[in-house]
């Protein structure tokens, strides 16, 4: 029985390495793959998935915030909306039959794999005119880009539309126990025009708050098992640290293809399980 915990630790460790190298959050890999290959009920995998994503974001958060990369003024309004919908998502997810959730998870994961395969990213998007809401809230910033030794100043647009997106992302994250960094980052970067590094770092802030909100629903519904969640958190965090060290030494493009393929396989497997096949 403890062996299964050790297996969850090792599996999460490997996933943690791949997650960092592919530039995706741990939760989005953890839930579909662990639910496909481990004997745990999907309820506990989703609970553990939320904790995996939340713990990773929390442990990486402080240095990113001190560097001005994770931005509170950008993240807090999105988290406020997203946390409410993530609670709702968790409640809906736990009230549905497992087969339905498994089927929906399969659809979401295949969609994520497709988006990851097709979507681009922009290091320093240019926003010529900020929208009225972001101007009123003074959502803008400046950070020091080490790689080019320059200050990068940024401002945002399409804030109201982005709030709607964060509402949906929160719901999906809570329902399936996914970290939702896969969706936060493109919305910040491609829709709002936030520099990529600020998008990734602020996504962690949003994720930590949304995950903490939804995790309570899993705890009160009995869907949070320390026996599964704790080794998964430990494995993912250790793997992420190793992955970060390997980041400069491996071809991340190839790893991303592997991870997208893994997601596609896990998504199709979830779909089949959802159909009872």
């Amino acid at each position: 029985m403890v062996g299964m915990g050790a297996a969850a630790f090792l599996f999460s460790f490997v996933l943690g390495i791949f997650a960092v190298l592919a530039g995706v959050g741990g939760g989005v890999l953890f839930v579909p793959i662990v639910s496909s290959f481990f004997p745990f009920h999907l309820d506990y995998v989703r609970g553990a998935g939320l904790m995996v994503a939340l713990s990773g974001a929390i442990s990486a958060g402080a240095p990113l915030m001190r560097k001005g990369l994770a931005d509170l003024k950008l993240g807090l309004p999105m988290a406020l909306i997203g946390s409410v919908s993530s609670i709702a998502g968790a409640m809906v997810g736990l009230s549905l039959p497992a087969e339905t959730v498994q089927l929906l998870l399969g659809i979401v994961i295949v969609a994520i794999a497709t988006i990851m395969f097709l979507s681009g990213k922009s290091g320093y998007p240019e926003v010529k005119v900020p929208d009225a809401l972001s101007k009123a809230l003074h959502i803008s910033g400046i950070y020091y880009e080490e790689s080019i030794k320059k200050e990068i100043s940024w401002q945002v647009h399409r804030t109201p539309l982005s709030l709607v997106f964060f509402l949906m992302i929160g719901f999906i994250g809570g329902m399936f126990g996914l970290g939702a960094g896969f969706a936060n980052v493109p919305v910040f970067n491609l829709l709002m025009g936030v520099p990529l590094k600020v998008s990734v770092a602020t996504s962690g802030l949003v994720l930590s708050i949304n995950g903490a909100a939804a995790a309570w629903v899993y705890m009160f519904k009995g869907a949070m098992l320390p026996l599964i969640a704790v080794p998964s958190i430990g494995g993912m965090m250790l793997g992420s640290k190793i992955g970060a060290k390997l980041l400069t030494k491996v071809n991340t493009g190839s790893v991303r293809v592997i991870v997208v393929s893994m997601l596609a396989v896990a998504g199709i497997r979830s779909l089949l399980k959802g159909f009872g096949i």
């Binding site: 915030m65 931005d71 509170l72 020091y144 200050e151 100043s153």
Partner: peptide, 22 residues
């Protein structure tokens, strides 16, 4: 908008407060 700079831009106090506790 990119600018050459001599020093790093200051980080807002509330960010530092959050980071310290975190």
């Amino acid at each position: 908008m990119n600018q050459d700079t001599l020093g790093k831009p200051p980080v807002q106090n509330e960010q530092l407060a959050y980071a310290g506790v975190l």
